[in-house]
């Protein structure tokens, strides 16, 4: 059906038009976002001088990186358990806890985690204060769900006879996991890592609940500036974001295409 092509293009225009406007006006000299005066990069320079913003950026980066690693670690185990180990006691509870964070409204997750941290802090003395550590825990908790889904679908697609072959050739289960399974699901591990990284970098609501004084993440700083209205500085920041993601993704897509063609050329007989 031809019409779906046009609707698809219309949908893409809908998705990208606001971002395009954002990018264009980040180079506008004027503070007013709707009137174009002249080309300027002054908002970018101001961005670099904003210490609060830069601090928040580095904090977010740290949290996002460590969130991604922990989520992939837990997500891999969780996916392996779901796919390979069959039934076990408490499986329903386990799968519910893995799936539910995908759709759980952020305000609920944020509030409940804060109450947990406060409660535990009073009761056990841990965590003594809230900050990067509690944000990290919160981010891992909801990222694990996404990572688990990504890895689970990859594990399901994987030909289990490869593992059986390795086992048949004398590899222990642990060896099989590290030498066969892990390399085969590595694309899913990478996408899971990137997914957890962007989810963490993106989160405003949950971080707002569980962060403490002095630990503001980038979205929190952006939010406090955005609620006061449109600011060209935020446009500049958004442009950097969009630019990085766009370039990164296209490099990724392009290399995947190259890789696909390369491996297709190496294995004749397969289309």
């Amino acid at each position: 059906m031809k019409i779906t092509r046009y609707l698809l293009l219309a949908g893409l225009v809908f998705l990208y038009f606001p971002l395009l406007v954002l990018v264009i006006y980040s180079f506008n000299e004027s503070r007013l976002v709707t009137i174009w005066t002249e080309f300027s990069v002054k908002w970018y320079l101001e961005l670099l001088e904003d210490r609060q913003l830069m601090d928040a950026f580095f904090l977010s980066l740290q949290i996002a990186c460590s969130t991604a690693f922990m989520s992939v670690l837990l997500g891999t185990i969780a996916a392996y358990v779901l796919v390979k180990l069959g039934r076990f006691p408490g499986q329903t509870l386990f799968s519910s806890m893995i799936i539910a964070p995908l759709v759980m409204p952020e305000v609920i997750t944020g509030l409940s985690l804060l109450l947990l941290f406060v409660g535990l802090g009073n009761w056990l003395g841990w965590p003594a204060s809230r900050g990067a550590m509690t944000i990290w825990i919160a981010h891992v908790t909801f990222s694990v769900a996404f990572v688990t889904i990504v890895i689970t679908s990859r594990l399901r697609e994987m030909d289990s006879s490869l593992e059986e072959a390795a086992m048949d050739l004398g590899a222990t289960p642990l060896k099989v996991f590290f030498v066969i399974t892990l390399p085969l699901i590595s694309p899913a591990l990478i996408s899971g890592w990137l997914l957890a990284f962007t989810l963490s970098l993106d989160d405003l609501v949950i971080a707002s609940f569980v962060s403490g004084p002095g630990s503001s993440t980038l979205p929190m700083v952006i939010y406090s500036s955005v609620r006061l209205g449109v600011s060209p500085k935020i446009n500049a920041l958004a442009t950097i974001f969009v630019g990085l993601i766009l370039v990164g993704s296209f490099v990724f897509w392009w290399s995947m295409q190259r890789w696909a063609r390369y491996s297709a050329a190496k294995t004749p007989g397969q289309q």
Binding site: G11, L12, L15, Y16, P18, L19, V21, L22, Y25, V33, T34, T198, L201, D202, L204, P219, I222, Y223, V226, G229, V230, I234, L237, A238, F241, V242, I245, L246, S249, F250, W253
Partner: peptide
């Protein structure tokens, strides 16, 4: 990829874009 891409940029910024 084009469809997923915007969701990798900040949700906050994408909503903010509509204000202007």
């Amino acid at each position: 990829l084009l469809v997923i891409l915007p969701s990798w940029t900040s949700f906050l910024i994408r909503i903010y874009a509509w204000i202007g």
